[in-house]
């Protein structure tokens, strides 16, 4: 009896140690989430000097959001630029991770290569975007090099071209993430039992067959994890296009992402539309999170 009460007394500390986390989470995440949802149901913005609302309008903000072409355009921009970065990222990462993990290749300097390719992931995205903006400017070093090599006759205006602007953003996303993905996939590949490979080789399988019939299927959970986390990250794409285009999504809003659109509502204090957009993004990322949650839980 005495022992049991002592155990309860000790276990009380479980609650106490959870207080800082949950208190902070409720104050800085749950409360803001609730007020964001609340705001999404009101008409509340400034028109010139006049304040409109707040008036309760139900789901009218959502109707307006989905009814105008803007949201769909920006959603498309975001997805397009994510896909354009993600496809080369997954291809290159699979290839590099496969080589790193292949025992017959015995690659040297692995630590060096991993260190270098992971580095862009830790770089301040806004500074990196600013750097690219300076490098690819009309009078910047890239144009200067292309001119001196005689590849172009006059400076190429990267930021006036839709394709070039989007390609630069995709390329930066690729650069910042392929090292990270390589290391995640490598961890998965190193976990594969080498006996499987040996057995396949004895049976006369080619490297291609081994890769597509053994490595890829075993990596499926980790590939799914990479895909979903990358998609969640991609939907939040903000720093790079924001700095590169000074928040305007130039040329002609073709590089404007959903979160840049949200930022415009936040800075112009259009709380109703900003709220509706936030709630929409919350639901999308929430659904994607559930997939990740189930993946992590299986492992827990």
């Amino acid at each position: 009896m005495n022992k049991k009460s002592k155990a309860t007394r000790v276990n009380r500390w479980g609650y106490i140690f959870l207080i800082p986390f949950f208190l902070t989470y409720v104050i800085f995440q749950i409360v803001p989430l609730c007020s964001t949802i609340y705001n999404s149901l009101f008409e509340n913005f400034r028109s010139g000097l006049k304040q409109i609302g707040p008036n309760f309008v139900g789901f009218a903000n959502f109707a307006k959001l989905f009814g105008t072409i803007d949201f769909w355009n920006y959603f498309e921009n975001t997805l397009l630029m994510w896909v354009g970065g993600f496809i080369p990222q997954i291809v290159v990462s699979l290839l590099l991770a496969y080589w790193f993990s292949d025992p017959s290749l015995r690659l040297k300097f692995q630590q060096f290569f991993k260190t270098v390719i992971y580095m862009p992931n830790l770089i301040m995205a806004s500074a990196f975007a600013m750097l690219f903006f300076a490098l690819f400017a009309d009078q910047g070093p890239v144009n200067s090099i292309l001119l001196s090599l005689g590849l172009i006759k006059e400076p190429f205006k990267f930021f006036a071209s839709v394709t070039a602007s989007r390609a630069l953003i995709m390329f930066m996303n690729f650069m910042m993430w392929f090292g990270n993905t390589t290391i995640l996939l490598l961890a998965g590949m190193l976990g594969i039992d080498t006996e499987l490979y040996e057995a396949a080789e004895v049976d006369g399988a080619t490297s291609g067959q081994i890769f597509f019939r053994i490595t890829l299927p075993i990596l499926r959970p980790i590939l799914l994890y990479v895909l979903i986390t990358s998609l969640i990250g991609g939907l939040q794409m903000y720093d790079v296009p924001q700095i590169l285009t000074n928040g305007k999504g130039t040329p002609a809003k073709t590089t404007l992402t959903v979160i840049m659109y949200l930022n415009q509502h936040l800075t112009s204090k259009n709380l109703g539309m900003g709220g509706a957009l936030s709630v929409t993004m919350f639901i999308i990322t929430g659904v994607l999170s559930i997939v990740i949650f189930n993946l992590n839980k299986k492992k827990d």
Binding site: F28, V31, P32, L262, L266, T285, I292, F293
Partner: peptide, 24 residues
């Protein structure tokens, strides 16, 4: 329940609650 909750909210991005956060 507490452990599941933390795991579930792990991927929720800060941007989607930024509006309420600024008001707070």
């Amino acid at each position: 329940a507490a452990a599941s909750f933390i795991l579930a909210v792990m991927m929720v991005p800060g941007q989607v609650t930024a509006l309420g956060f600024i008001q707070l």
